[in-house]
Design a binder for these strands. Structure first.
Length: 264
DNA sequence: AAGACATGCAACCGCTCTAAA
DNA sequence: GTTTAGAGCGGTTGCATGTCT
């Protein structure tokens, strides 16, 4: 027995949203809050699929969205996070205040991907193209000298200098250390802290473990239990747990250098 | 000026995951 | 333990707009 469709497709509008539809959706969510997307369209008087409403709200109408071009810092952070997390756009978006997974995904596919390819870096593996699998890009710099030209410098762990010079790489800008360290997901009241961590790369003691940070509530991997409060972190963000000895993933490190982690 | 092509982005589709019955 | 509904995610599509010839 297959699943029933999420909505009655024959009675729903598709395609671009009209201003009136946007206003109806905004008004309804302001009055009743998010949630129960399946029943929302009917309640709000919209001839739309619940999924469509959710997408429209999350990706376009939400008040806390940051519109406009991505900054260099955001570029760098996206690349770092992608090299670590892969195409986990929602997780990446969680680290970029005001950006949505869809926006980041689009930006990756239209801009960053091309940039990486243009300098001989496989955007999937973050390795140099046409090089042996042991050579992994460890550091990438991105900076826009002007609107048209992108200056890129790539450092390859084991590639000789003359090999680098033969690559079609434009070299100009200051280097960027791509140490793969990430901070807890962005939270509304922690914007400054998140920004600080993303720019400094520093990890400071977090009150909750990584699995909870990722929204994996009640996970068996939840390490908050170490403080005798299993699942406590999913119900309260106020508890304070000493997680000294945890690294950027909120994992017990025992001195492990996560920069050696490889992505597929 | 007009058609072809490229680009960017909003939106859709199909799948997975999770919780409740 | 199984089934089902709802929510969310990532891949893909299609259209509007910009650029090139």
């Amino acid at each position: 027995m297959g699943r029933s469709p999420c909505c009655e497709k024959s009675h729903t509008n598709k395609g671009a949203w009209t201003k009136e539809e946007d206003e109806r959706l905004i008004a309804y969510i302001k009055a009743h809050g998010e949630g129960c997307w399946r029943s929302l369209p009917k309640a709000a008087g919209l001839l739309r699929c619940g999924k469509s409403c959710r997408l429209r709200w999350i990706n376009y109408l939400r008040l806390d969205l940051k519109r406009g071009n991505f900054t260099e810092e955001e570029d760098e952070l996206i690349i770092k996070l992608h090299s670590l997390l892969g195409n986990k756009w929602s997780l990446i978006a969680g680290r970029l205040p005001g950006r949505t997974d869809n926006e980041i995904k689009n930006y990756w596919n239209t801009h960053i991907r091309r940039k990486l390819l243009s300098c001989g870096i496989d955007p999937t593996t973050h390795r140099a193209i046409n090089e042996s699998s042991t050579q992994k890009v460890t550091s990438i710099s991105f900076a826009s000298g002007n609107d048209e030209k992108i200056n890129i410098k790539a450092e390859f762990g084991t590639i000789k200098e003359d090999e680098i010079s033969s690559r079609p790489v434009k070299e100009e800008c200051p280097d960027l250390n791509l140490e793969l360290r990430i901070s807890p997901p962005y939270q509304q009241n922690q914007q400054n802290r998140a920004l600080e961590q993303s720019t400094t790369g520093s990890w400071r003691t977090s009150p909750i473990c990584f699995t909870c940070n990722l929204g994996l509530k009640k996970s068996k991997d939840c390490s908050c239990s170490d403080s005798s409060n299993r699942n406590g972190c999913s119900s309260s963000r106020n508890i304070s747990i000493n997680i000294a000895g945890y690294d950027f993933l909120g994992l017990k490190t025992n001195g492990l250098d996560y920069r050696t982690l490889e992505t597929k």
